[in-house]
Design a protein around this nucleic acid. Sequence first.
DNA 1: CCAGTACTTAGGTTG
DNA 2: TAAGTACTGG
Length: 759
Amino acid sequence: MGYLDELNTSQREAAENIEGPTMVIAGAGSGKTRVLTFRIAYMIDKGVDPFNIMALTFTNKAAKEMTERIGTIVGGGEARNITMGTFHSVFSRILRYNADRLGYPSNFTIYDTQDSKSVLKSIISDFNLDNKAYKAGNVLGRISSAKNNLISPDAYAQNADIQQEDKMSKRPEMGRVYKTYANRCFNAGAMDFDDLLYQTNVLLRDFPEVLYHYQQKFRYILVDEYQDTNYAQYLIVKKLAAVYENICVVGDDAQSIYSFRGANIQNILNFKKDYPDFKLFKLEQNYRSTKNIVEAANGVIAKNKDQIKKTVWTDNVQGEKIRVVRTLTDNEEGKLITNKIYDAIGNNGLYYSDFAILYRTNKQSRSFEESLRKLNIPYKIYGGLSFYQRKEIKDLLSYFRLTANHHDEEALKRVINYPKRGIGKTSMQNILIEANKHGVSAWEIMSNFMKYPVAINTGAKNKMSDFVTMIKSFAAQLEKIDGYTLAQEIARTSGILKELHTDKDKGPEEVERYQNIEELLSGIRSFVAGQGEHDSKSLSEFMMDVALLTDADQNKDDDKNHVTLMTIHSSKGLEFPNVYLVGLEENLFPSQMALNSRTELEEERRLFYVAITRAKTTCTLSYATSRFLWGNLISSEPSRFIDEIDRKFLEFEAPQRGKGRSLGGRLGGAFSNPTASGGLNKNLASKSLTPVNRANPPKPKTGGTLDLKVGYNVEHDRFGKGKVIQLDGDGPDKKATIFFPKHGSKTVLLRFANLKVEG
DNA sequence: CCAGTACTTAGGTTG
DNA sequence: TAAGTACTGG
């Protein structure tokens, strides 16, 4: 157990106190992960069975890091038996195992936020609600917070306070929407992210034997980032720990920055009430940053009223002062910071990866991105669209989802007519209406036209039946062949691969799409390979985890030596030698939206605290006195947070010479630049052209509807020459799918297409 | 069905 | 400004 010698006194005490309720308040950079991992290692050394340990984190990254670190201490074999992961992944596994008790299939789909919003959009439109008051995102937020507070649809509808709130925000039908949403998800065999916590609570509440089982299994429970737990998470942990009370929570109230999504600081305070004889450990020595940085940050956070008292200190060197720089515009800010990084690397031989640019809002990344590119500095912007959210990935995954769970309605809607197979919106709408009428899935209707007569034409019915047959043929192989082989077959047979392949020679974006699909498939291949040849995994196994994966889980071996650009929120838990904290302006940071209440402002201040404490050696703050906002140049004042740092830790940098000149050049250019008015003229010109085109009367339609056959060569006004590859629909709905060498294959309505048939 | 246009809106984010 | 959605004409 020599590894314990690597801990300081309070770290060691916290790690060794493995019995009974324990709370660890861990200041920034105080070695929190180290305590957690050593604590688990110590437990195992003391004879605790790894099967009895559950460790919960908030991000996949944290879970992965901890697994690896424990593995190096106690050995991978032991580490594997610990139940470790995010709340969502750990409880999704428990839910799958017990799904039948709740009436869900064990292979239930996990709807991501996109799916959830799409369900809500269709409900809102079905109910004819005003989609201004009922924006899918807002409605989902409302439902999400209900679920996180364990309020069922029925309880929601009966709660007078909630009804009042919804009336005030012009959403009186919220209760009905929530209930319908829950029903549709259930009928689709789908849980959304919040359900994973909500339904776990239902499971533990309604099935005492299940609760008993997991109480016995998880005799030792650890929770990381406890300040970020919401009520649903809090209650799960409380119930599971109720018998043995071997619960250890680790967190830092000063770094609570997610209250806007339901995190509740009160959970830290409740801990005292729930476990009066708990032991409290404070980790106050910072190993990360210089004295200047630590003390400056302390001074800032001291301005908050709500906090648990602690004194973070460090033995590290005094270090440089925090630099404050001012620029005239946001573009100027980008150039200046980028130049500083360029110089620092050139003069001191540092790595690109020693630098991070942190900002409050994603859109601020633009000016830095431009300047970094100009100087050829490698950078990576974190955040934004993740791999798994990309259209082509979601499309293919939808086929996999549908194969595993036929009732998955969002997957069905996505791919029923992609690639094009002549199943239109109206036909599908009729199916969905029928499904909702009977309270069954759309699949149920489509595979049982005898039982559920629907008024759509036979052609569409036949095509749907073909689709059903195709998916069923995939499903028949789910447990027979390995996941990679099946995934490949689905990609091919469904037509997705072909669809993207015909696009391939079009442009870089199309090529990228194709590459993404290849990347997904190769990801499946490595997942499936597992240990040996005989235990290769199935596609259903892959699908169980895929909804919970994020970009960080992709083991890409790309170059790690780059400047990091990210929001302060996503920087939590990370550290960098040199941090540039940009856009320190009133109404931007603190955000304008946080100025209404003390608690909101305090959360912004904690965010500022998190930002400063990411820095190990140097920290630079910057602000611009004017900034482009939605097309307008607005002037801005320096953030109050700069003033909140004691002057003795700051060094104000004189604005650089020549800056005024370059700005003058820019503005002057904009005012006097002939292209500005030229551009305007161009717009006017193109507008005045349109009526001229319209003046050309459309040619009268020839009888193309009648005698067109597959294989004919035709000519289209816009797409040029092509060959008919498919014909669908009748009368006015008659349409042709035509392959145009220049534009790929298109489907056109014959009524409008004005095709010329070539002799 | 496709493509072009008019109109709206704008935070932070994990799973 | 930029991006996304809803609408409209062929």
